[in-house]
Amino acid sequence: MTDALFLALSTLAIWSGWRVFRVDSMVRASFQLMVSFIAVGLIAVLLAAPYIGIATIFMMAVEMMVMALFMVMFMMNPAGLNPMVMVHQHRFSIAAGIIAFAGLTAAVLLSDLPVQRVPEGVDVVRNLGHELLGPSMLIFETAGVTLLATMIGAVVLSAHSGRYGASDTGSLPPGLTPGGEPAGRKPENGGHHHHGGH
């Protein structure tokens, strides 16, 4: 039973992971990725990790939803009505992917892996909680602080208001002399590059 479920879920995970880069719509791609994550989450539940597995599903549903939103906002062809190929260095990438898979598989098959199953009847969720707020609290808190820093950084990077005014109205620094040309680097489409050759 577990084996059949594992086989089905892992096939689903790999197949939908592959479809991410094959479907012609970005929204479809992000939801294919979500399906892949859900399959991995359910495998984790099979592996006796009910919290991590379901938390993965929860997190990834939200994350892929946000991703789909960004897809529709920024990307060409969000609904997939026109065929689209947006790849570069294709052969090299295929080779790299295959080599990574083959190398990792070889490493798995050739190495001697230790065997120590999760003992029956262990409350893994409670153990995780005690670990998070006990011996590993510092690590866990570091993750929290990192997330906070990320939030601040993301807001700074994406904020509409720049240092010298709104970004869509130019956001130019003031000139070095009163009324002079704006200081700093020139935008590329606005004249010459500042390095030699032209």
Binding site: V20, A96, G97, A100, F101, T105
Partner: peptide
């Protein structure tokens, strides 16, 4: 299975032109 996912992911990260992909 994990190796297969990593391989496909590496292919995608190297081959896609769009940032989000």
């Amino acid at each position: 299975v994990a190796a297969a996912l990593i391989g496909i992911g590496l292919y995608g990260a190297l081959s896609q032109q769009s940032f989000v992909m």
